[in-house]
Amino acid sequence: MTTTLTRGRPGADTVRTRTPRRGGHLRRALARNLRAHAFLIGALLCFALFTWYPMVREIVMSFQKVRYGETHWVGFDNFRQIFADPEFWPAWRNTLEFTGIALFFGFVAPFLTALVINEFRHAQSYLRILVYLPVMLPPVAGILLFKYFMDPGYGLFNQILDFLHLPTSSWLASQDTAMFSLVIVSTWANMGSATLVYLAALQSIPGELYEAAELDGAGLLRRVWHVTVPQTRLILSLMLMLQVVATMQMFTESFVLTGGGPQGSTTTVVYMLYNYAFNFDKFNTAAALGVVLLLVLGAFSALYLWLERRGGEE
């Protein structure tokens, strides 16, 4: 086989023709981009150690059990145990309920906020900081504030409602309102980042498109629908996928505010996983649940990519 090397090392401006040996070719290819490969190795090592190895280890652990310090292979026992757990399906229902509500608010609220900020001629940077502030707070500290705001007895929210002669709420203390309360907290804590991403996308839309739409007599809503949404479609769909993956792993809010209650109404899949691992001392069962969650989220991501690709082809 004869190969023509059309890309030489810097300074090698001649085109050479030769029959390379496989090893020599690889060596030269590596040498050509030595610095890039060195950086790549660093990143690969980090991924291998902190992402891929734990994933493989988790999968292996999900088929094992540890008793008195000794590890045994147990086949699908851990999976059978989690599927038979009466909390398993309610935890999925809670997770999906949270994902559904959080997605609606976590998607709409930052997008609307970005639209509004984008309309301001002045003070945009101040508003951006204001919206991003909750993200800068340590999550637990921020979330803990709501424990006091939402206290059914002396909480700020009920005092405000009471002052306005509106009915008060049990917030986190009732299984009817606990999940929605967590969504409020989660939206407040996380919308800053999404708002900035949407704002960046909005600012990349050429102004001429809006001017043209205005000349055609389009009002505000039509301009948003026919210009803004199509122009930010890619970002919107990417953020949708990322938010689904993130909200399905909700843990901190439940852990800090409700402990999975009242009556397990805020026990999500990840909270259940945490319980198995750290409260029940069953790391292997937790690993099995983690594998199930990984498969579900993996399937969702694959579906998203397939739909994206199909949309792109059309």
Binding site: P86, S170, A173, S174, Q175, G259, G260, G261, P262, Q263, G264, N275, N279, F280, D281
Partner: peptide, 30 residues
């Protein structure tokens, strides 16, 4: 298995202390 049983019974206690319409028999059976 004390910690595990305690965790399970958190739900029963939560029902008794937060839900005015709790079906306590059913909660305990679960």
């Amino acid at each position: 298995a004390a910690q595990q049983l305690y965790k399970i019974l958190d739900t029963a206690m939560s029902a008794a202390l937060t839900d005015p319409n709790a079906n306590l028999d059913s909660v305990l059976a679960t």
